[in-house]
Design a protein around this nucleic acid. Structure first.
Length: 216
DNA sequence: TCACTGATCGTCT
DNA sequence: GACGATCAGTGAG
């Protein structure tokens, strides 16, 4: 790791930003999982914890559909993926590779396993808190990847099942500005159903994860 | 910038 | 007992 120090916004600026965040209502979320994944690009994920507010603008998502071989729900409901089979708008959090948590939004009606993986986001507020949780990573890298995003927000299985459209510690807010030039690609890190174009991202955003060839 | 590897452990077969 | 919706570190081009 010999990269030069970035002149990014690393200075201590703990003053609250007073972002005009409006909680998304469940009725605003598209019923279709793929549409929801597109819709969430530009939306804001917000955590209100004891350490203050953390907020980040979503720039990358992936859709996991019913009957999708790559989806955790494909082999039926288990204790681990039960939230995916509940109603839409809930946080589905799972533990992966022995190291990381990933955050999804459940998207199906009761009994149908579907969801949207939140893969990457642009930090907006609570950057100091995110840096502390991410061991001082560069701002660009704080939420660039699903495991990193969850780590920056302090998300664990304890957040599984939280209603993201209701007052609470973790919620979704309407976009502050519309997403620019949304792009699509195949999903990342899969061995099954790896050819389906169900990844959505904001073209040109430096906060998007994955190889550059998938985000052009 | 990309390719490769080890870490690490819950979940399911 | 094997695998996995990942990440950080390393080395090559």
């Amino acid at each position: 790791m010999t990269s030069p120090h970035e002149p990014g916004p690393k200075s201590a600026s703990p003053s609250p930003l007073e972002l005009p965040l409006r909680r998304l209502r469940l009725a605003e979320l598209p019923l279709d999982t793929e549409e929801l994944a597109r819709f969430l690009i530009g939306a804001v994920i917000v955590s209100d914890g004891p350490g203050g507010r953390i907020a980040a603008r979503l720039v990358e998502t992936e859709a996991y559909l019913p009957g999708d071989e790559a989806a955790h729900s494909f082999r039926g409901e288990t204790a681990r993926n039960a939230t995916l089979f509940r109603r839409r708008g809930l946080a589905y959090v799972y533990f992966i590779y022995g190291n990381h948590f990933c955050l999804n939004v459940s998207s199906g009606p009761e009994g149908v396993g579907a969801g949207v993986l939140l893969r990457a986001a642009e930090p907006l507020d609570g950057i100091a808190a995110m840096e502390a949780r991410r061991n001082g990573a560069a701002v660009r890298d704080l939420c660039r990847g699903p495991g990193r995003l969850a780590a920056a927000f302090g998300i664990t299985r304890a957040q599984d099942g939280i209603d993201l459209c209701a007052p609470g510690p973790l919620w979704l807010a309407a976009p502050l500005r519309p997403a620019e030039a949304p792009g699509t690609s195949v999903r990342i890190g899969l061995t099954r159903a790896a050819d389906r174009e169900l990844r959505f991202y904001e073209r040109g955003s430096p906060y998007v994860s994955g190889p550059a060839a998938l985000s052009s």
